[in-house]
Design a binder for these strands. Structure first.
Length: 467
RNA sequence: GGCGACGUGGCCAAGUGGCUAAGGCGAAGGUCUGCAAAACCUUUAUUCAUCGGUUCGAAUCCGAUCGUCGCCUCCA
């Protein structure tokens, strides 16, 4: 299995530190607002990576942090006149609701910065003791020049960055690139006691501390958006490796942005939709399919039209699932079978190559087309064929890509089912009497309430519109 | 200014040295149907931004040009 590693800029064979265990850390949200659909893309991508590793029988330990104290939270707290904890609590709840709707599997741990102050302070202490950090009047900074490997992830060097001159000017810093490990509390800000006085941690240090605490000094995979490569992840490496003298992360995985009109969707540009809004308008399975159509590392443009296209694709798969479920399996011998191994092979080969979901989907669509064809040609279908088809769709779409396809049918209410069948019978009678006007009226009216009738040789079936 | 990514059919998007350039959406025609829908079939890129080069052979490697975007400041 190959994974593209941002650190080496190459696809590398994936060899976990302690197989079958795999440790994954994902940079989660700062819980000061609802997350947007671009954030959702990264969360879903990380979820698919995790699901595929589990599919491959790895024992995955998955950690996603929640940043619950920082400048943005403090700002929001002032705006809404609520304590920082309340803001954090509110948006943490919203976060869990939204990721559940998106079908994202729960992490093993969701560590929060405020619950790891001891670990954070210990880590800063180590860095100060080792001479990698310095204290200026209660503000502790990391001394970038002390860490030889600084820039190895982002491909930047300290000199280039200095000449860039876009770095914030702070007279306390020895070097403009040095970053905060501990921020001295200003009046009215939340604070924790520390050897350097009251204050709070800088943004980068929490990830180092929490990753170490929950997953160990060296982890297998660290996932985040491309905009975190520099400075966030670069700084995490500097902190962790300086403190531990061991490699921090074996494989760095970065996700591409969601673009609107060819521009990055971001809070600061204001061109974003919250995942919440989008979930109100689109089926979460269609959203996940939409994400999977493009490789996670590249940019993905976002629009209603594109999402509607994904909905149509999903519909095609739903139709096949429904068709499979409506068929009575046969136990006759000598029936024609369907060879489905090659589709699974194609799917796995694609996923093995750096989680190439768009190629993996092609295998699923090929299966969909060919299996539809098989069903049309064969009146009787053996039990094993139906079972293996279901198994294929479930393990590829649902288990790995997180797209639910079998749920709809299970949720069908039996009263509703009887009622609809009553209408179908009435319409069938009308059709026999060649009363097509009435037949069409029944069909049209049912369609208007989201029940779609389909005639075939075997009779009329119905499906509930996915919208 | 420094660093980096990308440019494939009407749209989205795989493929990154060698079988007929995946797949989805859309469009057109057809099979089936009372008509639809669904499903299936056919058509829709002699060509991969442009121009050069390397090679027996390039969308894929190299160079130049044009265009788009990102990071260097909080950001997934």
């Amino acid at each position: 299995m190959l994974i593209f590693n941002t650190l080496t800029k190459k696809k590398e064979e994936f060899i976990p530190l302690n197989p079958p265990k795999v440790t994954i850390y994902v940079c989660g949200p700062t819980i000061y607002d609802f997350f947007h659909i671009g954030n959702a893309r990264t969360f879903v991508s990380a979820d698919i990576i995790r699901r595929y590793l589990e599919y491959k029988n790895y024992d995955v330990m998955f950690v996603m942090n929640l940043t619950d104290v920082d400048d943005k939270l403090i700002k929001k707290s002032n705006e809404e006149n609520l304590p920082v904890e309340k803001i954090a609590q509110k948006y943490a709840e919203a976060f869990f609701e939204d990721i559940a709707k998106l079908g994202i599997k729960k992490a093993n741990v969701y560590p929060k910065a405020t619950e790891h102050m001891t670990e954070i302070i210990d880590l800063i202490n180590t860095l100060v003791d080792k001479g990698f950090a310095y204290n200026v009047d209660g503000n502790v900074f990391y001394d970038v020049k002390k860490f030889k490997g600084y820039g190895k992830l982002s491909g930047k060097n300290v000199e280039d960055l200095e000449s860039g001159a876009r770095v914030e000017i702070n007279e306390d810093k020895q070097n403009p690139l040095d970053f905060s490990l501990w921020k001295k509390a200003k009046l009215g800000e939340p604070f924790w006691e520390s050897p350097w006085g009251n204050g709070r941690p800088g943004w980068h240090i929490e990830c180092s501390a929490m990753s170490m605490k929950h997953l160990g000094q060296t982890i297998d995979i660290h996932i985040g958006g491309s905009d975190l490569v520099f400075p966030h992840h670069e700084n995490e490496i500097a902190q962790s490796e300086a403190a531990c003298n061991t490699e921090f992360v074996k494989y760095w995985i970065h996700c591409g942005f969601l673009n609107i009109n060819q521009e990055k969707m971001s809070k600061s540009l204001g061109n974003f939709f919250t995942a919440r809004e989008i979930l109100k308008r689109f089926n979460p399975n269609a959203i996940r399919l939409f994400f999977s159509q493009t490789h996670f590392s590249g940019p993905l443009s976002f629009s209603d039209e594109l999402l509607e296209g994904a909905e149509k694709g999903l519909e095609k798969i739903y139709n096949l699932v429904q068709r499979i479920e409506s068929i009575a399996p046969s136990n006759d011998s000598g029936l024609i079978t369907f060879e489905q191994e090659r589709y699974l092979f194609a799917f796995e080969s694609a996923m093995d190559d750096n989680f190439n979901t768009s190629q993996a989907l092609a295998a699923i669509y090929d299966f969909t087309r060919d299996f539809n064809k098989y069903l049309s040609k064969n009146e009787k279908v053996p039990v094993e064929v139906l079972d293996s088809a279901k198994k294929f769709l479930k393990s590829t779409l649902t288990d790995v890509l997180g797209i639910q396809v079998f749920k709809e049918a299970e949720n069908r209410n039996s009263k509703e089912d009887e009622l609809i069948k009553l209408f179908i019978d009435l319409r069938t009678k009308a059709k026999l009497e060649k009363n097509y006007k009435l037949a069409d009226e029944i069909r049209d009216n049912l369609k208007n309430i989201g029940v779609i009738l389909e005639d075939s040789k075997e009779g009329t079936t119905y499906k509930i519109s996915s919208k």
